[in-house]
Design a protein around this nucleic acid. Structure first.
Length: 431
RNA sequence: UCCCCGGUAGCUCAGUUGGCAGAGCAGCCGGCUGUUAACCGGCGGGCCGGAGGUUCGAGUCCUCCCCGGGGAGCCA
């Protein structure tokens, strides 16, 4: 008999099937025993009675949580069962019976304990749907760019230069030379977009920031795009199209997981239905201050400021044209006001913070050199980057999207650490 | 780096004015024919984060340290 996955059970009603998985939970009521089996695609309740199979009935009492097993049974529709389908069990075959109790019970646990057991925690009820949503987000990003003819190109992970400065880099030794883990693939994408026109990549980046917040990881995944001949306004439109595409794809493909997470798909769809809001940095500062959050013009927005903007608009909002002084050296200046950068941050709704940072890039050699010097960065290390402005420089723009922040928003989970299988945070390198 | 909270059974926590170390869950034993984190009865389970101090007596008070969580700054 061929094995089936639990998510396919609706197609097998009335037939006997084999389900292979793990014992999630069991209950007993004298002469009826219930085994809740998970297989990675969902949960199903098996009903075991002594008359159907005495051996299975005995096993249903004995098997501990997370025992791996094969279960044969007939699929029935039953509204009493979680998921709507139920298995009338005819046979149970243990694959592996644990000798010790599974560390993670079905009752509540503390965050520290769960994080220490992350390798087992991901088996539990809420975690699997989150990771399936993550998969759907990543697929949506790839599909979006692939449909538009973008070429996926990779940036190196081990690099010799900083993108944003040197304080947040993880240093390592590279055959006797100093090297770093990349904090962004952007500079390399600028090079590949001059070769291929429009490019993207999805990869891990590393920031040694000593941040302890629900929005930060030291290792996270970024989806970055870079497009030759694309200017600021087109860049914003591209980002908006991408974010809407992601949300609509995930809702279409993973509605059941969102519902399992008690995330209302209609709320998400409503948030991205209308054109995203767009405000300038100056307007945003006024809005933030009007909502009672203290900040001075010229400062970056803190988390409370982002939350205020988030609440004010109730949908994604672009904040554009920041003071160039507080932004990286590679951003092109606003031709109408050289104190401003041609950049934008995209703030997600519901307090999920900045999910995209992007800008039009400097395209003139002289301007780039000047801004490199102002940022006190070593010219020599950026010589190759300067070369891009020496041969056929064109206006170009790009952005980076924080995958885990998007997953957290779409899944509606409070903390980014659950949006990646094995989060790396300030004080956590295990497991 | 700074601010706040916490560390007691495998897990989640309670522990009064400083006076015998507790509960629920998990585990084990028993009961129950439709359970929904099932329920009911019983049993075992402790370096109270570590070091020092105050005291007749410290889980409780003081000092230092370690670990974890939340937030700030910074960022996606």
């Amino acid at each position: 008999m061929n094995a089936v996955y639990i998510e396919e059970l609706a197609r097998h009603v009335g037939r006997e099937v084999l389900v292979q998985g793990w014992l999630y939970n069991k209950r007993s009521s004298g002469k009826v025993r219930f085994v809740i089996v998970r297989d990675g695609t969902g949960l199903v309740q098996g009903v075991v009675t002594p008359d159907a199979d005495p051996d299975a009935f005995a096993l249903a009492e004995r098997l501990p949580q997370e025992a791996s097993l094969r279960v044969w049974g007939t699929v029935r529709v039953d509204p009493r069962a979680p998921g709507g389908h139920e298995l009338s069990v005819t046979r149970i075959e243990p694959v592996h019976i644990p000798k010790e109790p599974f560390p993670i019970g079905l009752k509540e646990h503390g965050v520290g304990f769960l994080m220490d057991h992350r390798h087992l925690w991901i088996r539990m009820r809420r975690q699997a749907p989150i990771l399936r949503v993550r998969d759907a987000v990543l697929w949506a990003i790839r599909a979006f760019f692939h449909e538009r003819g973008y070429v996926a190109t990779e940036a190196p992970i081990v690099v010799g230069t900083a993108v944003e400065g040197t304080t947040t880099l993880f240093p390592l030794e590279y055959f006797g030379q100093p090297a770093y883990l990349s904090q962004s693939g952007q500079l390399y994408l600028e090079a590949t977009c001059m070769a291929l026109g429009k490019v993207y990549w999805i990869g891990p980046v590393f920031r040694a920031e000593k941040s302890k917040t629900r929005r930060h990881l030291t290792e996270f995944w970024m989806a970055e795009a870079e497009v030759a001949f694309l200017e600021h306004d087109g860049n914003l439109q591209l980002q908006e199209d991408l974010v809407r595409y992601i949300v609509e794809s995930v809702v279409a493909e993973r509605r059941r997981d969102l519902e399992e997470l008690e995330r209302d798909p209609e709320v998400l769809l409503a948030e991205v239905a209308a054109p995203f809001a767009r405000v300038t940095y100056r307007e945003a500062v006024d809005i933030v201050r009007a909502r009672g959050v203290a900040m001075e013009p010229g400062e970056d927005f803190g988390a409370p400021g982002e939350d205020a903007l988030s609440q004010h608009f109730g949908r994604p909002v672009f904040v554009e044209r920041f003071p160039a002084r507080i932004k990286p050296f590679y951003m092109k200046r606003d031709p109408e006001n050289p104190d401003l950068a041609l950049n934008a941050d995209l703030i997600a709704p519901e307090g999920y913070g900045e999910i995209i940072g992007g800008s039009q890039r400097v395209d003139s050699e002289e301007e780039l050199l000047r801004q490199l010097c102002e940022a006190n960065l070593p010219e020599e290390a950026y010589r190759w980057y300067m070369d891009l402005r020496r041969w056929g420089s064109v206006p170009h723009s790009g952005f980076g999207l924080g995958v885990e922040r998007v997953v957290a928003w779409v899944a509606g989970i409070p903390h980014i650490r659950e949006a990646i299988p094995f989060p790396r945070t300030l004080d956590r390198l295990y497991p």
